[in-house]
Design a binder for these strands. Structure first.
Lengths: 225, 225
DNA sequence: CGTAGAGTTGATTGCGTTCAACTTCAGTGG
DNA sequence: CCACTGAAGTTGAACGCAATCAACTCTACG
């Protein structure tokens, strides 16, 4: 892990407009910047909940394992995302967070958070909102998982990824492996591979390794092409 | 809906030991008792978040619909469960809550909750815990949905249902229709029907309409029988 | 008694899994 | 600089779980 600093880098951040970390209330929170490398863990499932994190730069994933099964990728994290809220549940993290690419991340210790809570009346509602949103995001994923077919889930994923990227940039640079992505989507790696090939042949997407761009007609009707 | 009262019925409640509503902090919350009938809605997806609920008696379900798809049952609620927390997300409910059997439910208005928040420092942490737990519950469901086969998901469901029931009682009285249950498990009604038949023939469960009892060897090995 | 909704059963189809072989790519050491 | 190695990704063939469609039975309720 990198050495902690205490600089406000939000001023330089391209996401500062929409980021919770740049919110008035959150800005007052005591926090440190960490710069973990690819493969590092922010926390592992079962560990005591002592901090949560706000991603400024980079990418990460959350996995959870249930008894006897291979782990399931729950979520991919991008800049502005808050990581580790699941720890509020019963005092320990119920998932494992791992860095996918070199990242810059704000770390907020639970201790500092609890202190701030007493002084800043606006903090609790903000946190309720964050937790509520996280909950809804996962229930959406749950709903999609059982309702939609693999292709549609993948397209939804792409659209979500694209929305977090400046519009002028041409396509998306995926930060996760096919294995992780397939796991996240709930299909086998082979299925994902075939799926991408099909969509590519149909002209819905253009693929070059981990670089994928959605073609102009982003709407659903392009499936029929 | 039934007429609101303001009586503390926790003293008479068989679940009072484990129920959040009976927690010191929650007890001080201003709340009213409602007694909705089967089919009533506590709230519908998209409505403004103005209250959450604590179930004392009865059963309910939460459904969500995403664009263009049939609704997905997210969760079934039993006594002690808190309903409507998703509303904290963006100020509106992201799911619909419907009563399945005649129920007695505490209603906590957001206004009263916000008021209490200012006076009771222990309330926010308790709420964080509730929200965190709800989040984790849904991510578990998500993980199971993609990892486990239908039969195992059904058995897990049964075990969960059973754990909320006094041990001396013989078996479980399901409060939901096959349709809802199949939807919740992410399979077709027909599949669920066949599944139940198989398990019954293998001697893993005993079925009589909506009354189901897990046979003595509750452990996984009984699948092999 | 008749109707509607809930649940069951059977036959068929298909999406996605699994297994296996192959290709591509990045990193490492000679 | 190139050969080697292992991981990541692709392709093909065969299988199987669960969906779908359709007909039927059961149950509740008027």
């Amino acid at each position: 892990m990198g050495s902690p600093e205490k600089i406000d880098i939000c001023k330089l951040c391209p996401h500062s407009q929409s980021c919770k970390a740049n919110n008035d209330v959150f800005k007052k929170l005591e926090k440190t910047m960490i710069t973990p490398e690819k493969g590092n863990f922010l926390f592992k499932q079962g560990e005591t909940f002592d901090s949560f994190y706000i991603m400024c730069q980079g990418s990460a994933k959350a996995e959870c394992k249930t008894t006897g099964n291979s782990p399931q990728v729950l979520e991919f994290y991008h800049p502005c995302d808050v990581i580790g809220l699941c720890g509020f549940g019963n005092g320990s993290y119920q998932e494992t967070a791992q860095i996918m690419t070199y990242s810059r991340i704000y770390k907020v210790s639970k201790k500092d958070f609890d202190t701030a809570l007493a002084h800043s009346p606006a903090l609790a509602p903000l946190m309720f909102e964050l937790l509520g949103t996280s909950m809804v995001r996962r229930q959406r994923a749950l709903s999609e998982m059982s309702k939609l077919e693999a292709e549609e889930r993948f397209l939804n994923f792409l659209k979500a990824e694209q929305s977090g990227v400046p519009k002028d940039s041409n396509g998306i640079e995926l930060s996760m492996s096919r294995t992780d992505l397939a796991n996240y989507l709930g299909v086998a790696v082979e299925t994902l591979s075939r799926l991408i090939k099909n969509l590519s042949q149909k002209g819905v997407i253009e693929v070059n390794n981990r670089h994928i761009s959605l073609c102009v007609n982003t709407n659903k009707s392009c499936n029929a092409a």
